[in-house]
Design a protein around this nucleic acid. Structure first.
Length: 464
DNA sequence: TGTTCATGG
DNA sequence: TATCCATGAACA
């Protein structure tokens, strides 16, 4: 470890102890449900394989090689059948120059090739069985799972998790989310609770470069960075924007979502306009984006002289220029300065007292490290303090784990209000007293299950 | 062991 | 200019 200050050393020392207690606590799993569901999935997997074997795709597969050598899970064989035997133009090529058979690639050919959808369905089932239910059943002990949390594996001084990885359980796909998270139960009389920092990486980034425009976006709730960028990217007035969604995390399908994830976040991680343009252009189609007045977005762009992807790239070149050289000029200057310092010294220092370097880093890594690491350290400090307070007050509520910007707890119902007050106080107030470099407000969202509920049943709480 | 695919922040 | 950080399974 390369902590340059006592404080940084202490954070990881105390963090290791607090996370060890979370590992010791563990999360209760519903064993009968896991075994039953896994069995059900096994039947379904076999049924899907039978269906696949009735397809023409499988016939052609059989002509390509002796039956004993057929492996329906082989990505290499699948690529050969689709893109050589059937002569379909490969939609995506991998980094090493092979045919890609990722979900993205296969869903493009699936409408024309019966059987391909079965492969995707089978993959989903296999992922659920091997990684999730298989992992849970292998690692649980007496119905309690004890996932590990590491502080020594990630080059940005974030954490990681294993056996099982508590930090990548399905969430975005509603079916997978429900099926897998239903396996995790609250203890009797308890509720599962998840407390997230909102936009912590953007906030830490603003604390690094102190860009006045970004600080305003963060401090003034009437402004919205993603809305403004979306308006630039798609020639939209405020009235053209799809209605603001109350729950911004669930704004999938909105123009704002495309601006946020296709452009702004991609730019923060170091992407460039050409790639952003391709991704956003595809989103317009796959999400059927329309303006508030119901005009298709391709039609709307055509009115502004943007008729194809090449036109859109040209337009986005200008949007990118405004983004970095007008809107976030000071952020831009910080990037230049920080990278130059890395080239001069060979390391980059984090606000929390860690030093990264000693090995060659790419430019994007140098500029991401001071943001990703300290963002997690805000969470870790909060977790340590929460752990201290829960134990000092002899409370029955337990910390179960952590997901980069979120703490997961198993909270006794009678302690619920107290635990929430405690978390809010630590994460939004005490944290800012401890680290003076945090010059923006901290916000959290809280989700909780019913008493005796499970992790698929979290509901967002209204905080006052 | 390296590559590709899936999952998350 | 050329998207950051991970874990795990399966195949080659």
């Amino acid at each position: 470890m390369r902590a340059t200050t006592q404080e940084a050393y202490q954070l990881f020392h105390d963090g290791a102890l607090a996370l060890a207690r979370a590992e010791y606590n563990g999360i209760k799993v519903d064993l009968p449900y896991c075994k039953e569901t896994d069995k059900h999935l096994q039947n379904r997997e076999e049924a899907m394989q039978s269906l696949l074997k009735e397809s023409e795709l499988y016939q052609l597969w059989g002509k390509m090689m002796p039956p004993t050598e057929i492996n329906l899970d082989s990505t290499k064989q699948l690529g050969k059948v689709l893109f050589e035997v059937m002569e379909i133009p490969p939609p995506i090529i991998t980094d090493k120059g092979n045919y890609s058979v990722s979900e993205e690639a296969l869903s493009i050919v699936a409408p024309e090739v019966p059987g391909v959808q079965h492969i995707l369905d089978i993959r989903g089932i296999q992922k659920a069985r091997s990684t999730y239910f298989g992992g849970i059943l292998k690692e649980q002990f007496d119905g309690v799972l004890h996932p590990f949390f590491h502080l020594n594996k990630v080059k940005t001084y974030r954490s990681s998790s294993s056996r099982i990885n508590f930090q990548n359980l399905p969430k975005r796909d509603p079916f997978m989310m429900n099926m897998i998270r239903k396996a995790f139960s609250a203890r009797p009389g308890h509720r599962l609770v998840e407390v997230d920092f909102g936009g912590i990486e953007v906030k830490v980034s603003a604390c690094c470069h102190k860009d006045p425009n970004m600080l305003k976006y963060i401090r003034d709730p009437s402004t919205d960075m993603h809305r403004d960028v979306s308006q630039d990217a798609f020639f939209l007035s405020l009235e053209d924007m799809t209605p603001d969604n109350e729950d911004q995390e669930k704004d999938i399908g909105n123009i704002r979502y495309v601006g946020k994830n296709g452009f702004t976040f991609a730019q923060f991680y170091g992407d460039y306009f050409g790639n952003c343009a391709r991704i956003m252009w595809n989103y317009i189609d796959s999400m059927n984006l329309v303006t508030k007045q119901g005009v298709g977005l391709y039609d709307h762009l055509a009115k502004h002289g943007v008729h194809n992807l090449e036109d859109f790239k040209d337009h986005l070149r200008g949007v990118e220029d405004i983004f970095w050289n007008v809107r976030f000029k000071k952020y831009s200057a910080w990037k230049k300065k920080t990278f130059k310092k890395y080239l001069d010294t060979g390391y980059v220092d984090l606000l929390t007292g860690f030093r990264c370097g000693g090995i060659p880093l790419e430019k994007n890594q140098v500029l991401n490290t001071p943001i990703q690491g300290p963002a997690f350290h805000c969470l870790l400090w909060s977790l340590i303090e929460t752990d201290k307070e829960l134990r000092r007050n002899n409370m029955k509520s337990l910390i179960l784990g952590q997901i980069h910007d979120a703490i997961v707890l198993d909270v006794l119902d009678s302690e619920f209000d107290n635990v929430l007050d405690l978390l809010l106080n630590i994460m939004c107030k005490r944290l800012r007293k401890y680290w003076k470099w945090i010059i923006v407000p901290m916000e959290v969202t809280v989700e909780a299950s019913p008493v005796d509920g499970n992790w698929s049943e979290l509901k967002k709480l209204k905080l006052n």
